[in-house]
């Protein structure tokens, strides 16, 4: 039981940046703009938030800075793919490469620690929050264990992601006027345009949401998880989030379940490191790391279910005259 709870506990922790980034990608891709730049935006946000949190000693200002930096890159992506009708994939790749380049360059110049940021002080970091009564009922079987072991003791961003962002995104996409327009623009921009919806405006707004969520994801990594910025610290998480988004067929709840699944695989892998299993022996960690990517490939190919992308994805919208 205790093993299981700690496993699920780390699943939630590992999944949080994935959830935020996947939901970020959801906005962009549902509006018809491919976003392979999640990785770069998270990395930039991780850097900006760590730098500002270090300078001001305030994690919330760090969060703001992270969201601002990621939004700037989102706007760049929007400028290329919406205003200039450029290739969205190439733009996303440019975002990633620019992020990998600029973060260590600025990092070295500002902190002189080989491109990383210094370790943040305790006040400058987000901390685990203990929910009320978590300690007192920790010994109650099952309920107490779940409450204090699994639900309590996470960083504020975790609660924000699961209790605020996820419902909000689901509501926005499916129940709000903006969400309807978002989906319309992503499926058939010409029809949406005929109905008087500004495709450009909706796509810019979508990328604005995208940037803010990416910023939260990046901030989680540097200002909470490691407590400092480390070169290339996203290490493919942006692509993993993209995989989860596809895995969830571009729907918020399913995408989040994809993130939880991938995070669970990750948590299991960390625990299995060097532990021989009965009959099979020791499983190399790489075998588990590879699962999300293989699953995504299989899903895209239609071998396990079918992932159908928003119809207008990747196609620049040129208003017919």
């Amino acid at each position: 039981m205790e093993q299981l709870i700690s496993l699920l506990d780390s699943t939630i922790r590992v999944s949080t940046p994935l959830v935020l980034a996947a939901l970020a990608g959801l906005f962009s891709e549902r509006s018809g703009v491919v976003d392979i730049g999640l990785e770069g935006k998270m990395l930039t946000a991780a850097f900006a938030s760590a730098a500002v949190a270090y300078a001001t000693g305030n994690p919330w200002l760090g969060l703001l800075a992270g969201m601002f930096a990621a939004t700037m890159l989102s706007m760049l992506h929007a400028l290329v793919s919406v205003t200039y009708n450029g290739n969205q994939l190439i733009s996303g790749m440019a975002v990633n490469t620019i992020a990998s380049g600029i973060t260590p360059v600025l990092g070295l110049a500002w902190f002189q620690q080989g491109g990383n940021s210094p370790q943040l002080d305790d006040v400058a970091r987000f901390h685990e929050i203990n929910l009320p009564f978590a300690d007192s009922i920790a010994n109650v079987p099952v309920i107490g264990q779940i409450y204090s072991g699994l639900l309590s003791g996470h960083c504020i961003l975790v609660y924000l992601a699961f209790l605020v962002v996820l419902p909000l995104v689901t509501w926005t996409v499916y129940c709000s006027r903006f969400g309807l327009r978002l989906r319309a623009v992503g499926e058939n921009p010409h029809a949406a345009d005929t109905a008087g919806i500004s495709v450009v405006r909706i796509r810019y707004l979508a990328l604005l949401c995208n940037g803010m969520l990416c910023g939260m994801a990046g901030t989680f990594l540097s200002v909470y998880q490691t407590g400092s910025f480390i070169k290339e610290m996203t290490a493919g998480k942006g692509f993993l989030a993209l995989a989860a988004l596809i895995f969830g067929k571009w729907r918020p709840t399913y995408a989040v379940m994809g993130c939880l699944l991938f995070a669970f695989a990750d948590a299991v892998q960390i625990r299995l490191e060097g532990v021989p299993l009965p009959f099979i022996g020791e499983i190399p960690s790489q075998f588990i790391q590879v699962i999300p990517y293989v699953l995504t490939v299989l899903l895209l190919a239609g071998f396990v279910g079918r992932a159908v992308a928003p119809k207008a994805i990747g196609i620049p919208f040129v208003k017919s005259r």
Binding site: T97, A99, S100, G101
Partner: peptide
Amino acid sequence: EMVLLIEG
């Protein structure tokens, strides 16, 4: 990594 920036 400056080169990466130029590349991007």
